[in-house]
Design a protein around this nucleic acid. Structure first.
Lengths: 103, 103
DNA sequence: TCGGAAGTTCGATTCATCTAGAACTAGAAT
DNA sequence: ATTCTAGTTCTAGATGAATCGAACTTCCGA
């Protein structure tokens, strides 16, 4: 198990990023990572099975929203803050803010 | 044919809004409406059939992104700028900017 | 009143997505 | 080595989404 591949900043596509953020489970994950913290998959609270969580993390990674690196048996996940900010300025901040906002 | 119903500002949900924006055809529509202009369905250029376009406009409307009002045989579509700004500040601007940005 | 124009809705198809369980892989620890 | 832990991948089912053509509804104009 090695660190999986990630798309380059130039390869980030807005529809794909928005789609990745449009699922409630994934949005929750992104919020949990919001502060820039690096978390292991297992420390993410999500109401889904292990395999489904892995799937969602792959969607986020493939869209370029998160980065995953191997650390022993764990995978540490974090947001690609700088790249996203460079490519789509302000977007992630708005989304995280909007998710925290009450209905 | 009357003006269809629209969700209230409070009812707007972020995942639904992001999903509405995550389709290339719909993103193009939103960009075309970006300046605040009010356009008839038929004046929107989209590489899809009339019924598919109607479907996409319904998704945008149901998510609260656009407003549609009847005017004779036409439907005039526009963005719900103020409401979206109140509910998810900055979001629409970031998305439209990001869509216009080159890869 | 009879068409035509502008959209919507319906039905069907095809394709993607979410979901979970089972089997698998890799590293750590005993 | 064996076993445990942490995730991934495979397979499969159920659900949702995008697409189109055809039929329908409204309104406007000849």
């Amino acid at each position: 198990m090695r660190t999986p591949s990630h798309p380059s900043t130039d390869a980030l596509r807005l529809p794909e990023v928005l789609h990745a953020l449009s699922d409630p489970v994934r949005l929750e994950i992104v919020c949990a990572l919001g502060g820039g913290s690096e978390l292991a998959c297992g420390h993410l609270e999500a109401p889904v099975s292990k395999s489904t969580l892995s799937h969602h993390l792959k969607v986020l990674r493939d869209a370029g929203v998160t980065r995953t690196r191997a650390d022993g048996t764990q995978r540490l996940v974090s947001l690609r803050l700088e790249e996203l900010e460079a490519r789509f300025p302000g977007l992630l901040g708005c989304v995280v803010d909007g998710a925290h906002r009450p209905a």
